[in-house]
Design a protein around this nucleic acid. Sequence first.
DNA 1: ATTAGCACTTAAGACCACGGAGTGCCAGGA
DNA 2: TCCTGGCACTCCGTGGTCTTAAGTGCTAAT
Lengths: 337, 337
Amino acid sequence: MLDDRKLSVLRAIVEDYVSTNEPVGSKSLADRHSLGVSPATIRNDMVALEEEGYITQPHTSAGRIPTDKGYRLFVDRLSTVKPLSAAERRAIETFLSGAVDLDEIVARTVRLLAQLTRQVAIVQYPSLTRSSVQHIELVPLGQQRVMMVLITNTGRVEQRVIDGLDQVSEEAVENLRQMLNRALVGKWLTDVPPSVEDLPAQVPPDDRRMAVSVLSVLLESLVEGHEEKIVLGGTANLAAMGFSASLRDVLEALEENVVLIRLLGEAGDPSMLTVRIGAENSHEGLRSTSIVSAGYGFGDQALAKLGVVGPTRMDYPGTMGAVRAVARYVGSILAGQ
Amino acid sequence: MLDDRKLSVLRAIVEDYVSTNEPVGSKSLADRHSLGVSPATIRNDMVALEEEGYITQPHTSAGRIPTDKGYRLFVDRLSTVKPLSAAERRAIETFLSGAVDLDEIVARTVRLLAQLTRQVAIVQYPSLTRSSVQHIELVPLGQQRVMMVLITNTGRVEQRVIDGLDQVSEEAVENLRQMLNRALVGKWLTDVPPSVEDLPAQVPPDDRRMAVSVLSVLLESLVEGHEEKIVLGGTANLAAMGFSASLRDVLEALEENVVLIRLLGEAGDPSMLTVRIGAENSHEGLRSTSIVSAGYGFGDQALAKLGVVGPTRMDYPGTMGAVRAVARYVGSILAGQ
DNA sequence: ATTAGCACTTAAGACCACGGAGTGCCAGGA
DNA sequence: TCCTGGCACTCCGTGGTCTTAAGTGCTAAT
């Protein structure tokens, strides 16, 4: 059905269209790539590719442009991830190595990705649920309020205020604090709920009400770890990407963190580099964009994802290379922290 | 020089241009506003206004559009801030009242402002330096590291890790913690540095090195309060605002938090509503935008600023009304927390 | 199976004519 | 002195026609 030459033609079409942003015709294809056949032959191959749905014509007597399906085939079988140049790798290293805390790592990563790919970069904060407890702190704030601070091994800090208590005593808080830390430090967050089940029973009756409040807030904060944080960068690059018409839709989609989190989540195996093209993205506003994403974390254990959003007409090999490289470096930096 | 009627003409020009986005001519002006004079008279007034630099012509035989100077006069003398409708005020209240912590207040405020004004909203986190110390927590992390958490009365939490210590003992940390809280709770952050000067002397010599490290990080975090946090929203509205050409510049400027902070800072009296028009903004990319901002805080003591960025061709009275109203509500919510 | 040749299609650009909205200016009237 | 009606002029935007360049599909020959 699709012999090697037809695939080469498809590859050439994608490459040319990506670099010129203009429908590519049989003649210019024959000129620019040495395919060893004449334009007429290429034309014949093109109708085959078009019948299969890999390319399409904006209008009769224009060149062809790849469809989503065409890009998909290109990504899956016709291209290889392009490794970064030595200079780029050095740039990543120096750029990221100066970061001191998690916020700064994330902020720098976003800028880096945006600059490398000249597209919109997305970085998700390390998910709460895939981390372990480093420390829990309880801080009395006046008579009726206590602040809980949860610190994870990924450097993330989650704080909540527990309100509406009565007569909080310093010792009671201190006791609870020690009890919590003894029970939970080092545990995966997912293991926290079972570990605290029988804690209230060990608290003196007078303080039990407070203990229960604190625990419920703690558990709640784990569940709401679902409310994961995301940072965006490089939106200015959107202006140069040329979806002028639908630009508003894209910006709107990017502002909806919920949407982005869902999209990143939909991407398959978190340890892999995944590409979602055009309509695969299941979000109206992003019909004409592709998302390249990868998980990052300690070794092969992914904590969260990062990626870039760009036009379906993007340089996939280059973008994939950049995303993969950045994900690896961020992982190693986090591990070193 | 500029009699009342000329000012009315200018006002009418601004209003029409803002609503139609097209240069406005003498005839349509006479039709749409009941100025009581003929187009010819209006034309005469227009040349006067043009000579003074308040309006300009895109080209001969087109209508007039206001210049930055024209907008300035309009804002200063020809318009009054438009109060919000009862419905809008209710919307603000219900929208903001559900927020539980500072992060959520800020996030909701940004969305609210963006929706009300259909422009880009900016909200600055309450500045560290204008808050007071609510609590300081020290948490030992292993043998060589301590985490410091600073909680302010505005609900803001600042955390740092102090690294490279040796042999951190639980008691030493606990002692220092109590000492710090005794010395600092309730103090304005600006008063912290003098208050800790002689603290190291009171620490047992063995622990002094740690105490000094912790203090220096604490002080540093106050200074870096300069690194104030900002949140953006409604960038999707940019697409509909019609600077297509310079859109990239605007997006770039908006991504530079440093720039935004500076611009907000440049605005005058923080307790007032201020408007900076076009080139007044001293940043290349924002030449064709105006910024309407206001301080917010407890009562008349401003903690930080918020505002919106839009095209110079914006509805100033409406925008100013929205910004002022939101600033007030946020202030009252913060005070109630 | 490939190629050369040819007739056909279409978008994009150049050119032109023209209508509309606006202007400046001048002379006459309150 | 200030306002107004009238008039000639300017310029942009629109729509029509024509031409050109690039590309296609088809057919016949290799």
